[in-house]
């Protein structure tokens, strides 16, 4: 039974080790630079949300608006997601 214990915990250690290696080895700088370059170029850092036509795309600026079915308008997802 001790063998089973060592096998299970060696497996867990291996998983933790692999995650640590991936975490340390990931190149964060180039990803951050790309984002910063676009933000610097456009002076906009708004998330590229894949939204329907009546949902706001640029946060804190646009507001949800459905002129066709105002009474049928779904609960605004962005209102859920972001604290106003």
């Amino acid at each position: 039974m001790a063998k089973a214990f060592y096998t299970v915990f060696s497996f867990l250690f291996l998983i933790t080790f692999s995650v640590s290696i991936h975490y340390v080895a990931t190149d964060r700088v180039s990803a951050t630079n790309s984002l910063s370059a676009v933000a610097g170029l456009t002076r906009m850092g708004s998330l590229s949300l894949s939204v329907a036509y009546y949902e706001p795309r640029v946060q804190r600026i646009e507001k949800a608006n459905n002129i066709i079915y105002p009474e049928m308008m779904s609960i605004d997802r962005m209102d859920f997601v972001y604290e106003n």
Binding site: H22, T26, R28, A31, T32, S48, S50, V51, A52, R77
Partner: peptide
């Protein structure tokens, strides 16, 4: 999340009503 890019679940965060977005999530 960081190796497979969080398929399905990422749409809750970024939406899926417009263009599909395959983002690289920084660990």
């Amino acid at each position: 999340v960081f190796v497979l890019g969080a398929p399905l679940l990422r749409e809750i965060f970024l939406g899926g009503a417009n263009l599909p977005n395959s983002v690289i999530l920084v660990p």
